[in-house]
Nucleic acid binder design. Structure first.
Length: 229
DNA sequence: AAAGCGGGGAG
DNA sequence: CTCCCAGCTTT
């Protein structure tokens, strides 16, 4: 099982974060540590591009400022605010989640979102990625996360033979993500954000813009700008 | 392991 | 036109 050497992992993360500090887009969900707001952004961003989520995010939060507001609303009202975004199961799951955390099992949750991947995974609509994202992006606790961006970047950089379609290879990518993750939650936050930003802006699905990549000297697939895969 | 779920944008 | 997108649930 291919895993980057610790020295390569540190260098990879260090360069990645340095690049992020200079090239990060300003996105509303990066300015908050409110777990609810992070959760809403992650749900909206599932299989949905940033540019389109931006059209809905602020308006949705204005209508539903916190989890209690979602729990207090009818499902149809949440769906109405979601209209146009697609994948409406996400809105139904958010409503179910809010009802459970705020109303049905407040003794379990204290009315707030949990802060560990295992607990978050219990909630409807929250899978492995979203659980890691809330844990790290909201609570700044150290947690690995793998979405399509991260999977692509890590695969091209460290394990080009893996095929993210296969479940077993996805497990390996999570292991690599864990192996390159910095120790502290704070550094892990920047690392994860940077990894996803690199996948969105530089190391994209159709085009690998290696000439602009901060980790090309480490990357296994570097300068195969049309290698894709 | 594979299908189903939305709708818009990039190439 | 085809593929892709800060995935998850169900079959």
């Amino acid at each position: 099982m291919p895993r980057p050497a610790p020295a390569d992992a540190r260098e990879f993360s260090r360069r990645l974060r340095a690049w992020f500090r200079r090239n990060a887009r300003e996105l509303p969900w990066r300015d908050t540590r409110d777990a609810y707001r992070i959760l809403v952004s992650e749900l909206m961003l599932q299989q949905t591009q940033v540019s389109r989520v931006l059209d809905f995010y602020a308006r949705f939060l204005e209508r539903f400022p916190d989890l209690a507001a979602v729990a207090a609303a009818r499902k149809s009202q949440v769906l109405a605010a979601w209209r146009g975004l697609g994948y409406y199961a996400r809105a139904r799951n958010l409503h179910k989640l809010a009802r459970r955390v705020v109303r049905e099992e407040p003794h379990v949750y204290g009315g707030a979102l949990p802060a560990t991947p295992a607990e978050l995974r219990q909630l409807p609509g929250v899978g492995a990625y979203t659980a890691g994202a809330v844990t790290n992006f909201a609570y700044e606790k150290r947690a690995a996360l793998v979405d399509t961006n991260v999977a692509r970047v890590l695969r091209r950089c460290f394990a080009p033979h893996l095929r993210p379609k296969r479940a077993r290879d996805v497990t390996r990518l999570w292991a690599i993500a864990e192996a390159v993750l910095p120790r502290t939650g704070r550094a892990a936050w920047a690392h994860n954000q940077a990894l996803m930003e690199l996948g969105a802006l530089v190391c994209t699905a159709r085009v690998a813009r290696c000439s602009r990549c901060p980790v090309r000297s480490i990357c296994t697939s570097a300068d195969l700008e049309s290698g894709l895969r």
